[in-house]
Computed example of a mutant assay.
Amino acid sequence: MTSPTPPLPSPARNTSFRRTAVIAAAADAALILLFAAIGRDAHQRGEIITGVLATAWPFLAGAAAGWLALRAWRAPLALWPAGVGVWLGTVAVGMLLRAFTGQTVVLPFVIVALLALGVFLLGYRLLAAAALRFRARRRRA
């Protein structure tokens, strides 16, 4: 006797999940670019657009690696494992790529990147979770 197959997700629900994953990935990328822009501005470096992209690309690659390794699209707004994994992947892979390409990797920068990207990449997920809980409570009331 075979077990029944689970029901397929409805197209509306599947679209909602896909949209959430795209928005979360875009938010991660935008916040990484913001981190790079703030850092470049703090150190008064020229080449605004190309400079920000040159600073950001290792971290963007790290975020992509984190997304792929964890399959974060399954629960992109979850703090654990998606948020923490993407955050740590962003910093770890980003710093390795910076080192391999001759960019600066010093302990103070690693600490600043870890803290700032943690606030950015985990912070919006915490806010999203709070907003979703608030909306769920309002629906029940």
Rank of each mutant, 00 (worst) to 15 (best):
D41K: 11
P6V: 14
M1Y: 02
R71T: 08
T50V: 10
I38R: 02
A26K: 01
P7T: 08
A92N: 03
F120G: 04
R19V: 15
H43E: 12
G102K: 13
A75S: 09
R71A: 12
V119P: 01
A25N: 04
R125P: 00
R18G: 04
T90L: 05
W67R: 09
W73T: 10
G62L: 10
T5Q: 14
A56E: 01
L34K: 05
T104Y: 04
T101Y: 05
P58V: 07
S10Q: 07
A65R: 03
V112A: 15
D41G: 08
A69H: 00
Y124I: 08
V110S: 08
A69I: 10
A37W: 09
D41S: 14
A128C: 07
R138M: 14
R19K: 08
V22L: 15
A54W: 04
V22F: 05
F59S: 03
G66N: 03
V22D: 06
A25M: 11
A128L: 10
A54C: 01
P11T: 06
V91Y: 02
V112E: 04
A63N: 08
T2N: 11
A30P: 05
V119R: 03
L132F: 11
I23Q: 09
A26P: 00
W80G: 03
G46K: 00
A29R: 03
L114R: 03
V112W: 02
V91T: 07
A82T: 15
V22W: 11
D41N: 10
A12W: 01
V106T: 13
A65S: 08
A63F: 02
G94Y: 02
L122N: 00
P11F: 03
A130E: 03
Y124V: 10
I38F: 04
T50E: 09
